[in-house]
Design a protein around this nucleic acid. Sequence first.
DNA 1: GCTTGTGAACGAATTCACAGCT
DNA 2: AGCTGTGAATTCGTTCACAAGC
Lengths: 214, 214
Amino acid sequence: MDRNAQIPLATIQRLPAYLRCLLQAQAQQMPLVNSNQIAEMCGGNAAQVRKDLSYIGELGTRGIGYDVGDLIGHISRVLGIVEGRRVAVVGYGRLGSALLGYSGLPERGFDIVAVFDNDAAKIGTSADGLIVLGTDRIGSELRDRGVEIAIIATPAEAAQEAANKVVAAGVKAILNLAPAVLNVAADVAVRQVSLSTDLQILSFYLAQVGKSDS
Amino acid sequence: MDRNAQIPLATIQRLPAYLRCLLQAQAQQMPLVNSNQIAEMCGGNAAQVRKDLSYIGELGTRGIGYDVGDLIGHISRVLGIVEGRRVAVVGYGRLGSALLGYSGLPERGFDIVAVFDNDAAKIGTSADGLIVLGTDRIGSELRDRGVEIAIIATPAEAAQEAANKVVAAGVKAILNLAPAVLNVAADVAVRQVSLSTDLQILSFYLAQVGKSDS
DNA sequence: GCTTGTGAACGAATTCACAGCT
DNA sequence: AGCTGTGAATTCGTTCACAAGC
């Protein structure tokens, strides 16, 4: 297979799930897994697992399966999560606070190294070992601390301005938790997470099954 | 167009974004919008907006555009969010607490009517007007309160058991915020939200641009 | 014999381009 | 003249089915 071809986005979006399953397999002392087992653990199908993995290299052994440790290393390398990525959180409301306390991020190599808010009452207070800074300091602090990813956890109205500030500070990757569309330069990657959107999709599903029942 | 054909999933996933933009347009007193304006506000493209909307009906006027109020009504009806949907939260950690305090959910018609946790220290305490209940009461309370959607905000280890309980209580739609794959019956819809997954995808993007720079 | 890796077939989603209506 | 609605063309993603290798 042509290893210079770029990996499809759909595949990239599944790699983190594979990684999670493999770490679980490793915790259970399984030295090897086959594509069926991965598919079952991740809720996918075996052919897709094989095709996805084939995009990142010939990693398996025919007749045997995949070496768990090897695969973990490979996927981690492809995802660029070999070392700790430095992350900043903008918006220290209840959601921002939940992020600071969430152990799942450092466990996966994402270290929150700065928190910002523009509420004077919060600035200067302590947040899980960090001091909340004013949003006017985003520019200088993100550069000083080598932040690569910003998580926006502000209300919708403040999200665009927060994005402008982190982009001005050189950040090229944003995880947006605010229910707002961000307008940023084409070389900045944005991923949107919106609970209300997901709830609305579930709501559609409920409306569908309700209809066919009647 | 055949209105009995089912709406593509990809379209459904964009409808909530359109709805959000339309509500914004309405707040700005705009009576009409055209597909270009919607596309610009949501970060999509005009042809796609038109095709998506055509799946749910002939809603526009050629030469003119779409009536904002009409479209809002139509999309809301398709998404089944005309009335308040009853939602329960399982897991009252920092994330669960952030959900209870998040005004965006009731604003969009999702009312949190119950919270559960299995930590004895939390049971019985007050959570934004609700009392935290033990997870052993999920079965009875979800039925009593007419809950249709469950949000799982437990640690990964507890997620499957939480899912089993809410499914046993008749819930057919789950929003899973725990980093774990849920195994549920085929007639239960699950949507997975995972911040670490999204961060890993952003990390891949950073690794890519870093590579081509060198 | 068992499992990977992968062309080929299939299906889904996006984009194009223009006819049809106001 | 302007904008929608939609077949047709294209691109992208998934699934199949089997040859290749252990």
